[in-house]
């Protein structure tokens, strides 16, 4: 159970980073921490004590496998996370070119 709670604490660390940092790059880093805590959680729910990699071999009798489905989910989620992070960084760089700063407080054209 402790590992799952640690995982959630990691999620909250990332959320804290996103909410309190002023630098856009640091916000993206906080976001990535949140993302990876999710991936870690998904990978852990499929883990079975002393489980083997889920590959069928003939000579083994009644083997215990880890659950392969969360692993497939994590792979998909990592690819999606890559796209999100890349887009975030691309937008951050474009903002830097327009405003000349990474400080989120100075990027405040929109109000109301």
């Amino acid at each position: 159970m402790t590992v799952y709670i640690m995982c959630f604490i990691l999620f909250l660390v990332g959320l804290y980073g996103v909410l309190t940092r002023r630098n856009m790059i640091k916000i993206v880093i906080g976001f990535s921490i949140m993302e990876f805590s999710c991936f870690l959680f998904l990978a852990m729910i499929g883990y079975i004590e002393n489980g083997l990699a889920p590959i069928l071999k003939e000579e083994m009798e009644n083997p215990v496998y880890v659950d392969p489905l969360p692993q497939a989910m994590v792979l998909t989620a990592i690819v999606i996370g890559l796209a999100t992070t890349a887009l975030l960084l691309a937008i951050a760089i474009r903002i830097y070119k327009k405003y000349g700063t990474f400080d989120i407080r100075k990027v405040n054209e929109l109000k109301g």
Partner: peptide, 22 residues
């Protein structure tokens, strides 16, 4: 600016949903 804001909040929402799926 709007897109960055939208992405950060939308991204948090997506991660909460992923967590819930897990």
């Amino acid at each position: 600016e709007a897109s960055f804001k939208y992405q950060v909040l939308g991204g948090i929402a997506s991660l909460l949903i992923l967590f819930a799926v897990g």
